[in-house]
Amino acid sequence: MTISINHLTKRFARFTALDGINLDLPAGQLTALLGPSGSGKTTLLRCIAGLERADSGTILFSGQDATGASPAERGVGFVFQHYALFRHMSVFENIAFGLRVRPRATRPDHGDITARVTKLLQLIQLDWCADRYPHELSGGQRQRIALARALAVEPKVLLLDEPFGALDAQVRKELRRWLRRLHDEVHLTSVFVTHDQEEALEVADRVVVFNQGRVEQIGTPEEVYHAPATPFVHSFLGSVNVLKESSSATYVRPHDISLDPLSSATHPIAGTVVAVNAAGPNVRVEVKRTDDGQIVEVVIPHTEQHRLNLKPGGVIHLGYERFARYGAAAQPEYAI
């Protein structure tokens, strides 16, 4: 099912959460809404779910107006940031809840419900904990149960609010891959909200970058990373050096900078090495520019460090080939 959002605006008492959002979410894709906190991404997700009502604008589900529909009528599955599992119900009852509260006419019979819930428990590989209560389980397990509960009502859209936000790094990575695989199996139109760019780039088919209630850029993970449309996207996705020049600023990623002991046309900027950190897969070097004193972050492979043998205090020259400039013009200027 496709979702189209037109001119959606939502204001809270003092600030504008959504400022005329236009967005199309294609069927069967996994879309990430990425942005810093307060950028409006969660508000948009809650508007799609019908948990929040927009001040103006429309939301269409497969071309049909769903702006005023209740959450139940929309047929969405929603996974809450803190899972919102019903603490007094067992895992089984949590997953069965959406089926049990249906009107008698459409409610599956007892056997069907048991079969459906059991199948979902197998899908999330937690069939052994049907009779447990939410507080007896780990965060990752509860996350998967929240997902199964949302899937039990066979939604047409799956919405996830910061699905991995409350988990530790290891579990986060596992669940990320698991969600990607699950999506490839069920092919449900899915939208998830995250503030973690790594997460968005790894899992999603498409990334929508938010800032201050507006969409900054929509694209595949490759597009938003390699061809950022705005300075905001450039600095939000990965680290970046902003090199000041006379008329404009040049945005260069640390690993796109190369170093050379000698000054040349390709390495015109002189500087002094301030710090070298060789722990990790790459070597991180901090260089202080001689002309304006700016600290520039550079990432080079270990092989480069072997060649250059950088030490704090040493003189070095910087050069780059890949960069972006954002002048007054709307279109960024790239050199790749």
């Binding site: 779910a49 019908g50 948990l51 209740s70 959450p71 139940a72 969405v76 599955g77 929603f78 809450f80 803190h82 919102a84 599992l85 019903f86 603490r87 007094h88 119900m89 809840f97 959406g98 509260v101 249906r102 509960r149 949302a150 039990a152 009502v153």
Partner: peptide, 25 residues
């Protein structure tokens, strides 16, 4: 209000949400 919201998204009516989600907790 997250649990109530979850119940509403799963299709529970206002009364069902109150009796089965809010009251027990």
């Amino acid at each position: 209000t997250e649990e109530e919201e979850a119940a509403r998204v799963l299709g529970a009516s206002g009364w069902v949400t109150f009796w089965r989600v809010t009251l027990p907790s």
